[in-house]
Design a protein around this nucleic acid. Structure first.
Ligand SMILES: [Mn+2]
Ligand SMILES: [Mn+2]
Ligand SMILES: [Zn+2]
Ligand SMILES: [Zn+2]
Lengths: 142, 142
DNA sequence: GTGTTCATGAGAATCATTCTCGCATAGCCG
DNA sequence: CGGCTATGCGAGAATGATTCTCATGAACAC
């Protein structure tokens, strides 16, 4: 219901590159930009072309194995995530992310849409804050 | 709590350009990109430089008179909106927007954040769907 | 094996947004 | 009313993430 998935009857051909991107995301905790992932892969040794990193990420997002978030600066950030619908609680300071289930919001979104006659509903919910660790460590000096 | 506001003791000098941008947004219904707004102003006769459109929009967002949304393509979309906290119900097909109040989500976000020890919470909620008019008119042919 | 199809990668192209910098203008003071 | 200065403006250049192009290589079907 989100991505364009893969056209019926076609298979996605496996590749070292796509596996490498997914494996890297498995080792990472927070969200990372495509550019960062590309740089990390290069450091790691198994290099992947930048264009391919983008293609792999798009494929993974379409397959629901990775989800994407748009930062305030418009740069896309990717993160490996569980395939069931959920939302994120993100630390504004260190990027730590918690996946949260959301029955109430789910219900609320459906209801508000129905009240206004909207069909085929999707919603996008992200909660930002400062995690306990960062709060303790003290605010960033500017 | 969102924008960087205006540094204490400084005043924002009024200008024809900023007024024009705001006035245009008043006449529009859905969300519009900076580029679109720039083109519309040009057609309208009272032209404004593109860079200035961006500056004006930033200022208006900081002042809370306009809010901004990032589309899936990363392009920022702006819309005049009421100054009280609210969320949007957006038609995926025609762009029509409804502002919705959200006591339940508000509570839910605060609670979920508290449960995980997050402080200084913000949230970002958008609901997308197909409005009644567009559902009736039939889906877009692709 | 052999021909077909899909994936890759280097670099060019796109394109929204931001920056630069010379100029216009508003607000201020005497 | 003239100067003085901080601020806004605009045209074009610069930036930078993402996408496109196209030639090459790997996977698949038979
Ligand atoms: Mn997730
Ligand atoms: Mn609004
Ligand atoms: Zn943190
Ligand atoms: Zn509609």
């Amino acid at each position: 219901m989100s991505g364009a998935d893969q056209p019926e009857g076609t298979a996605r051909r496996p590749s070292r590159q796509r596996s490498a991107v997914l494996a890297l995301l498995d080792d990472l905790d927070g969200f990372s930009s495509a550019q960062d992932l590309h740089a990390l892969l290069r450091e790691r040794g198994d290099a992947v072309g930048l264009a391919t990193v983008y293609r792999a990420l798009q494929a993974l997002v379409d397959d629901g194995q990775v989800d994407v978030l748009r930062g305030a600066d418009g740069e896309a950030a990717y993160r490996r995530c569980s395939p069931v619908h959920h939302h994120h609680l993100v630390c504004r300071s260190c990027g730590t992310t918690v996946e949260v289930a959301d029955p109430p919001v789910e219900r609320w979104a459906r209801q508000i849409a129905a009240e206004h006659g909207f069909a085929d509903v999707q919603h996008q919910v992200e909660v930002f804050g400062t995690c306990r660790a960062c709060t303790t460590a003290g605010p960033v000096v500017s």
